[in-house]
Nucleic acid binder design. Structure first.
Length: 585
DNA sequence: GTAGGGTTAG
């Protein structure tokens, strides 16, 4: 351009700067602007501020803004710095500037509000966000798609999905991004996966052509549904849409979708075929492999990732540490945990500590767990206490388990799984009175146990089984089938483990209850209704019970079937009488 | 010249 003899003005530099996201380029352009005197243009300063913000260099942006002073600033300068604070998750700071701006006589526009709201969404600040929303209700701004998407995003990320929908419905003509925000909001909530799909279709009916982001959002909604046939269906839609070749994030979402549907080998194939990868691609496949118990492969891939020059992130380490936890690799886990800070400059957050607690707890190293908790730079929330409680149950550490359960109940009083686990622990140790006390506490507080349910998809129909419930139309056949198999199971070494029966049952009654566990019913139904040797997949909302785990191992041996059960934590792949988790879970 | 949505874990 310069060689062609055309003048480079402030506007050109602004345009170029805003098109550049890499920080080195922004710094270079900044240098160029200073040298050529173009930095006297406000528009250039504004764009440089945005450029620095996108490059996560908050201080540089702040310096530019401070140097400008009130005489140079325009309302766009204010909008830019507010957006930068939003990108860094500083909601309250964005709000302060928003108020400051008004005090100094600058008028806020839709652009300003969209940025402030997005800042609150990023910082999950429902209180401040709602306050701002209330002040907007009388005005025209809530009908602006940019402002509305800030509201939808805020409410969805803070868990108020109904309010997200309300904010969406205020807008007469939603644009593509607003639709995507709604779909993404639904996809964040497991119970609203169906709505994510419905919105995706509604958006198409409204005449919009989904972009890469729409696909990413709807695919992550599908991932929560864990329905293999629907997973394949959306893959077909992606391929047909022709969007797939160019968008790495769509592929990454598909990798997760296949993993969560129990098809980790398909996920791996997809990953292997990628011509372009990024850190998230690695994070996705490492997570998938870890959840399926392929710890060695996950860790090998992690090493491959490092060798190929990809920088791991905090999320990478969550998968890596959970791979170690699932496979009992204590020393390796410590090595990776320590390398986070030392080698990669990543400060471990509570999730990482929680993985370490899980790793050490499963390995029965409770002393090390307590030391780690003492050394932590913050106090544990239920995120960390939950795996510890699980480990205490596995190893029968009643005292520490009771403490963990108390802490969880204190921190999140409506948590229903902690008291159930605790009362089961007491019950399996024969401490019935204490078990009953916990049950009473649950009743008093109105805490209800989440019913265990398992489901299996056959011919695109999802069959749901709830423990001890007889609502499935063919439930009698299922019981007959299990009855018919019980002798073979006994001969193969199955002994019912009544420690997993709830409450104060007599042994015989406990055994009956075990037989009614939802995962056994779903597995039996699968075996009855599929061809010989056909693998089956069962999904469960809670963790698989120890007795079912043992029973399904034996069933896989006597029926020569590959049976995969995905519970709330991970996948168990049973075949020839053993499980991919090697009984370490 | 400035603004809104996305993938990964638990």
């Amino acid at each position: 351009m310069r060689r062609g003899g055309l003048a480079v003005d402030g506007f050109t530099v602004s345009t170029v700067v805003s098109a550049v996201t890499g920080i080195t380029s922004v710094a270079q352009l900044h240098g160029y602007a200073v040298m050529s005197g173009l930095d006297s243009y406000v528009s250039v300063k504004n764009s440089l501020m945005s450029g620095y913000g996108k490059g996560m260099l908050l201080e540089e942006a702040e310096r530019l803004f401070a140097d400008m002073g009130d005489s140079t600033r325009t309302h766009v300068s204010w909008n830019c710095i507010i957006a930068v604070y939003g990108q860094h998750g500083h909601g309250r700071k964005a709000m302060e500037l928003f108020q400051d701006m008004a005090r100094r006589g600058f008028t806020a526009d839709a652009c300003t509000l969209a940025s402030v709201l997005s800042a609150f969404a990023t910082s999950r600040d429902l209180v401040a966000g709602t306050e701002l929303h209330c002040r907007l209700i009388k005005g025209k701004f809530i009908c602006d798609p940019h402002v509305a998407s800030g509201l939808v995003d805020l409410y969805a990320k803070c868990g108020s999905i109904q309010d997200a929908w309300k904010s969406f419905s205020e807008v007469d003509k939603p644009d593509l991004v607003l639709w995507n925000t709604l779909i993404s909001g639904y996809s964040l909530h497991k119970d609203f996966s169906e709505e994510a799909l419905l919105s995706f279709r509604a958006m198409q009916r409204a005449g919009f052509c989904p972009d890469d982001c729409s696909f990413v959002c709807v695919i992550s909604g599908y991932s929560n549904m864990s329905s293999p046939s629907q997973g394949q269906q959306i893959h077909a839609v992606v391929i047909k849409s022709d969007i797939q070749s160019s968008h790495i994030s769509v592929h990454n979402a598909m990798i997760t979708l296949y993993s969560r549907c129990g098809k980790v080998s398909e996920a791996k194939m997809l990953f292997d075929r990628l011509t372009e990868r990024n850190t998230v691609s690695y994070n996705s496949i490492i997570a998938g492999l870890a959840q399926h118990g392929h710890a060695a492969e996950a860790l090998k891939l992690f090493e491959g990732m490092l060798n190929s020059g990809y920088e791991p992130t905090g999320v990478t380490f969550i998968s890596v540490l959970s791979a170690c936890a699932y496979s009992g690799k204590v020393d390796e886990g410590w090595g990776y945990f320590n390398s986070m800070k030392q080698t990669y400059g990543i400060d471990p957050c509570e999730e990482h500590y929680s993985c370490m607690i899980d790793l050490l707890g499963r390995a029965k190293k409770f002393k090390e767990v307590e030391e780690l908790i003492m050394k932590m730079p913050f106090s544990l929330t239920s995120v960390g206490w939950t795996p510890l409680l699980g480990a205490c149950r596995t190893h029968g550490n009643m005292e520490l388990g009771a403490r963990a359960a108390r802490e969880i109940l204190h921190l999140s009083p409506s948590n229903s799984s902690a008291p159930v686990v605790l009362s089961n622990m007491y019950a399996s140790a024969g401490r019935w009175e204490e078990a009953a006390k916990v049950r009473k506490l649950m009743r008093d507080r109105g805490i209800k146990k989440k019913p265990g349910c398992s489901w299996i998809e056959l011919g695109r129909i999802i069959h749901v089984f709830v423990a001890s419930e007889v609502s499935h139309p063919r439930i009698k056949e299922v019981y007959r089938f299990l009855e018919g198999m019980s002798e073979k199971m006994r001969l193969a070494g199955y002994v019912p483990d009544v420690r997993w029966a709830l409450a104060k049952d007599q042994a015989a009654e406990g055994e009956m209850r075990l037989r009614h566990h939802s995962e056994k019913l779903a597995v039996a139904f699968g075996l009855m209704n599929t061809k010989e040797r056909e693998p089956i997949l069962v999904l469960k909302n809670l963790r698989i019970c120890g007795d079912c785990h043992n029973a399904i191992k034996i069933i896989s041996g006597i029926t020569h079937r590959e049976i995969t059960v995905r519970d709330a934590h991970r996948f168990h792949c049973f075949s020839d009488g053993s499980c991919s988790c090697r009984d370490y879970w």
